[in-house]
Nucleic acid binder design. Structure first.
Length: 354
DNA sequence: AATGCGGGGTA
DNA sequence: TACCCAGCATT
């Protein structure tokens, strides 16, 4: 059964796998690493252009390590999960300082780098160095849970352990790179989450989930997502050609990205009423300002939050004290990284905002 | 062991 | 709307 499973996947990869990607077959560990960080929880099509941008701007790990943080974040802007960007830059600097710019070549040293966990370490170890470590990503969970009919929740500790051990047992000797590539592509192309192609699947004959009609029920997840709503009111405060922004530093969404002056309300608020709240007065104090315009509501759906944002364009004729915020010329805003909802606003308004 | 972190695609 | 995507760090 094990032999059938691995051989079938390797054969499928050799003869029928048409999934092409810029980093496939890549042997440079730096490029493999870059692609793996970008692709964490991210679809291949979504990460593709970002990979190309990063390779173009930073062809080697030394160049990435030497880059200013703000420039790297600006390249990452729009991709999400921004801690990846922060950790990636830290890891690049680790590689230069501790390994003289040579990518570490054991599973343990690879995983010791910032932002690299079990999956990414196995991916780099196998693809770059053909080391015998099985990858365990969303695709592998799905393929294994279905073929072997395993209903242990994949988001439980027991599940992760069970699937990791099975994946490692299945890894064919000396073929780590091609086998890991095979099973992930197979999960993405054939054994898909929705509408798996069981009618043409070369594993279907021995797939337990297919035989039992359980493909729609596997893999199992134990936890259900709770989504909370948040209401952001941004004061786009302008003085001459400058606008006030700050970097988000709290342990919250969009850490290390920039934003305008934020008032978060516990519930939807009328923007006129907002201007007489304590929160607003605490920021604007007795500053004389003019309300030039008010935007509509921008909605952004994150995985576990829904953000409703509205932008108030305020202008002042005297430069105010605004602790924690910096006044930046509007033509330099593109040096800073912003969350999607703000780049949407800027894109929609840039002709009329200033 | 549980929670939080983006943005986009699909049904 | 609900779920998922070449997961990881933090608590």
């Amino acid at each position: 059964m094990k032999q059938f499973f691995t051989n079938t996947l390797l054969e499928w990869n050799k003869n029928e796998n048409t999934r092409s990607m810029p980093w496939k077959g890549e042997k440079d560990p730096y490029r493999i690493w870059l692609s793996e960080i970008i692709l964490q929880q991210t679809r291949v099509e979504q990460g593709w252009a970002y990979y190309e941008k990063f390779i173009l701007n930073y062809p080697t790990v030394k160049e990435l390590a030497a880059a200013p943080e703000e420039a790297v974040f600006r390249l990452w802007q729009g991709l999400g999960y921004y801690a990846r960007c922060k950790n990636m830059l830290a890891a690049a600097r680790q590689i230069v300082s501790a390994y003289h710019g040579h990518f570490p070549n054991t599973y343990e040293t690879i995983q010791s780098l910032k932002g690299i966990g079990p999956y990414t370490a196995a991916a780099i170890a196998s693809f770059a160095f053909n080391l015998p470590h099985a990858v365990l990503d969303g695709n592998v969970f799905r393929v294994l849970s279905r073929f072997f009919d395993i209903d242990t929740p994949i988001d439980s500790t027991a599940g992760k352990k069970q699937f990791a051990e099975l994946a490692q047992e299945l890894l064919p000797h000396g073929l780590s790179a091609s086998y890991n590539q095979s099973i992930m592509d197979f999960g993405a192309v054939v054994c898909k989450h929705q509408q798996p192609a069981c009618h043409t699947c070369p594993l279907a004959g021995k797939c337990k989930a297919f035989q039992l009609g359980l493909t729609g029920l596997l893999p199992v997840k134990a936890k259900k997502l709770v989504i909370r709503k948040r209401y952001f009111y941004y004061l786009v405060l302008q003085y001459k050609d400058q606008v006030f922004i700050r970097k988000r530093t709290e342990s919250d969404i969009w850490q290390n990205l920039h934003e305008f002056i934020l008032i978060e309300a516990p519930a939807p608020e009328d923007v006129t009423a907002l201007q007489s709240t304590a929160a607003f007065k605490n920021i604007m104090k007795d500053i004389r300002y003019n309300t030039d315009a008010v935007s509509g509501t921008f909605k952004q759906q994150l995985t576990h939050q829904t953000i409703y944002s509205q932008f108030l364009m305020l202008s002042v004729s005297k430069k105010p004290e605004m602790p924690g915020y910096m006044a930046v010329p509007r033509n330099q805003l593109d040096h800073y990284a912003f969350p999607k909802t703000i780049t949407d606003f800027l894109g929609n308004r840039e002709l009329t905002l200033f």
